[in-house]
Amino acid sequence: MKPEKVDSTLDARGLLCPMPVVRASRAIRDLPAGAILEVLATDRGSVTDIPAWCESQKHELLHWEEDGGVFRYYVRKGG
């Protein structure tokens, strides 16, 4: 489910694999546990990369959607 509140947004549009995940890793690092990071990406590879990254790093992928070629991910930082 799409969250009502986002704590930070990362615009990774135009970046190719692996950069959306690399930038998301950097962006989420400074957020407190439980914070929600919104990631915007245009790389179709992010559809598999972002969920795999969330699982490997113990973050929770709350929701993702595509609109006009832009993928939007909502990630809750793990504790």
Rank of each mutant, 00 (worst) to 15 (best):
K2W: 07
K2N: 09
K2R: 15
P3S: 09
P3H: 10
P3Y: 08
E4D: 14
E4Q: 11
E4P: 05
K5M: 09
K5R: 13
K5Y: 10
K5A: 12
V6M: 08
D7G: 12
S8C: 11
S8R: 15
S8I: 00
S8V: 00
T9M: 00
T9P: 00
T9Y: 03
L10C: 10
D11N: 15
D11W: 03
D11A: 07
A12C: 04
G14S: 03
L15Y: 15
L15E: 11
L15K: 12
L16W: 10
L16K: 12
C17R: 07
C17G: 04
P18E: 05
M19C: 09
M19K: 15
P20M: 07
P20K: 06
P20W: 10
V22H: 13
V22S: 12
V22D: 14
R23Q: 14
A24N: 04
S25L: 07
S25H: 13
S25E: 13
S25Q: 11
R26S: 13
A27I: 00
A27V: 00
A27D: 01
A27Q: 02
A27M: 02
R29A: 11
D30Q: 08
D30K: 11
L31P: 02
L31K: 01
A33M: 10
A33D: 11
G34H: 06
A35G: 09
A35N: 07
I36Q: 01
I36L: 04
I36E: 00
I36G: 03
L37E: 02
E38R: 14
V39Y: 00
V39H: 01
L40Q: 05
L40W: 04
A41F: 03
A41P: 01
A41N: 07
T42Y: 01
T42E: 06
T42A: 11
R44C: 06
S46Y: 03
S46Q: 06
T48F: 11
I50F: 08
I50L: 12
P51G: 12
A52P: 04
W53G: 06
W53F: 15
C54N: 04
C54T: 08
C54Y: 02
E55F: 14
S56N: 12
S56L: 13
Q57V: 12
K58G: 15
H59S: 06
H59F: 06
H59R: 02
E60A: 15
L61I: 03
H63Y: 12
H63V: 04
W64F: 10
W64A: 06
W64E: 10
E66H: 08
E66P: 07
G69T: 10
V70D: 04
V70A: 04
V70K: 03
V70C: 02
V70G: 05
R72H: 10
R72P: 03
R72F: 03
Y73T: 00
Y74N: 01
Y74T: 02
Y74W: 14
Y74S: 01
V75D: 00
V75C: 03
R76Y: 03
R76P: 06
K77C: 00
G78D: 08
G79A: 13
